[in-house]
Design a protein around this nucleic acid. Sequence first.
DNA 1: AGTCTTTATCGCCAATTGACGATAAAGCCG
DNA 2: CGGCTTTATCGTCAATTGGCGATAAAGACT
Lengths: 104, 104
Amino acid sequence: MKARCCPTEEVIPWARSNDEQLALLASALGHPARVAIVRLLKKRESCICGEIVDVLPLAQSTVSQHLKVLKEAGWIQGEVDGPRTCYCLNPQVLERFQLLLNGL
Amino acid sequence: MKARCCPTEEVIPWARSNDEQLALLASALGHPARVAIVRLLKKRESCICGEIVDVLPLAQSTVSQHLKVLKEAGWIQGEVDGPRTCYCLNPQVLERFQLLLNGL
DNA sequence: AGTCTTTATCGCCAATTGACGATAAAGCCG
DNA sequence: CGGCTTTATCGTCAATTGGCGATAAAGACT
């Protein structure tokens, strides 16, 4: 058993201008459900999966879409663990986001 | 003549949950053109108007739409000044955004 | 008054988003 | 093996977004 899933990878899409990176991260955060997901993943430092579905008032497929958006923007990482998937915040992402904001 | 336009008003939409406020601010920032506008308005502390149109590779009507999005989310304020409109960053908004982010 | 400049809005269009149910894929457990 | 659980993907649909040109509105300037 691991204390923490998806520990090492770098998934933030770097091959973009700063404006594009910031816009991508911001737009991925630009939905209340996704804000709630990020908050949830930050509170429980360990990673969760279908618990997110239980917490949000949305269909499983919709939540899966939101998770995909967050993952593609670099906010979160997901690791398959048996039949379920374990998500967690990308550790560098909040700091990176703040950095880009300060660079405005 | 004023040293600074739109100085006093409070335009951030407060009547929302924190998640909704953060999502609104984030999604408004979630486009490269709007990031560029915010950066421009921050660099020149004084407010600009159609200069934004000159800087961006977009039609005037498109820029106007982006300005509207930013204004409705509370990022910027606009003040009519003769035939032109003077925009500037809402002074509290960056701080507020960071606060909401830290509250995640 | 008439013209010019500036900006917001309208109408249109293509593309994207957000939601859902249904289905598929992958792994567990009897 | 057969069923159960979990999650990703597909298809669909309505709504929103992002772009543009055209037009309207509001001042400025002869």
